[in-house]
Simulated scan of single mutants.
Amino acid sequence: MTTDDDARVPPLRAGVIGLGWAGQQHVAAYAGTPGVDLVALAAQEEHLLAEYGEAHQVPIRTTDWRELLDADLDVLSIATPTFLHAPMTISALQSGIHVLCEKPMAEHAEAAERMVRAAEQAGRVLDVAFNHRQRGEVQALKQVIDSGVLGRIYYAKTGWLRRAGIPGLGTWFTKNERAGGGALMDIGVHMLDMTLHLMGEPEVITASAATHAEFGPLGRGGSGFGVSELEEGTPFEVEDLATAFLRLDGGATLLLESSWAQWIPYDQCYVMLYGSEGGASIEWGGTGRDPYERLNVWTEVSGVPAELAPHVGPHGRHAAAVTGFLAKVRSGAHQQYTGRDALHRARVLDACYASAGTGTEVRLGSAVPATAAASRTSTIQETP
């Protein structure tokens, strides 16, 4: 229901660049949000422009994303290949548009830093769509943690392991310069973000990591297929498995693993938190026929072991990420939301790749982006 106050506030004019799966989620979120007019779409696929443009009666549809910069937009979602995030985001911010960018923020931290600077200079919101942070279990566990039930969290383990899930094997997803990395960059960043969010945003001080490529170079592990065909001239340049040991400020530690393809029975995602007063875990995965989702909290009450059962609400997914972005835009406190949390994630990824390339522990801030980028290829080349 629209109130008199709502009627006096002009709707936000929204646009979306990119109409792959993620972009389609942004389109649906804007189209279903009161007080927002979805007025512009940009994509290379003309059939998708026609399909989603007609479905939502979007007046501006173009294959040239630059045309959206002159469309008098208030907000813009960018859901394109990773290497395009920085140039598109910076151009939009400089045009006075608030930006919601898909994860990962950029192919390396140097590009992410330029995005943050552009947001600060323009006085506009820059947000990154970590949609898995919007899961019902994550929201419920965050409330438990903030209430103090777990005490001080001193150790965490988190990971996303796929049975066979290399996205677009042989396309930009598996090319280093365009994607910036492999499984760690694509799905590991989700688990990193989720865990740091639950732990209260501790700073990562050092990273010790390793990467492997055992499936992709053989054309194995493609999404939905046992064996995929590699396109000629587009080798598998990134990792399909990464592990990292992270030291956090205050003495806590975090173990992170991510994999696109593994000899495991089914996909597995998890966050495990170890606190001074209790522990907790979030798990989901399984198969299409036999999925599972679990939230567990363990502590003690009056000296008696106790297992808590927090209420878990629905998953917010991309719709909640868009809603949160719009709330930041409408808050007027734009300088508080310039993407710095996401930049921290990008710096952690750079340090992990630099560590994997050198075989040593890397302190954040000491890894030069060029060194980190080179290591993402060099570690893969070592694999027979």
Rank of each mutant, 00 (worst) to 15 (best):
L255F: 13
F83W: 15
C101R: 05
E201H: 15
G53Q: 09
P202N: 03
D350W: 09
L68R: 10
I264S: 10
G32Y: 07
G357D: 05
V271H: 02
A261F: 11
A333W: 11
V116Q: 03
L48Q: 14
A261V: 06
G159C: 08
G226W: 00
L192S: 07
A140M: 12
Q143R: 15
W160P: 01
D64H: 14
A213F: 00
I60M: 14
Y274F: 14
H311G: 12
S223P: 00
N176L: 15
A109Q: 09
G233H: 13
L308N: 12
A373G: 01
V9P: 00
V125M: 00
V75G: 08
I166T: 08
L364M: 06
G359I: 10
E203Y: 11
T33F: 01
A71T: 04
T211P: 00
S95D: 06
I380S: 00
D4I: 13
L126R: 02
N296Y: 03
K157N: 11
D127G: 07
G365F: 12
T3K: 03
G151F: 08
W172L: 07
G181S: 12
T206M: 10
H98F: 05
D127W: 06
A79Q: 04
M199N: 02
T174I: 07
P217H: 11
F215T: 02
E110S: 14
P217D: 06
A367Q: 09
L198E: 03
R178D: 01
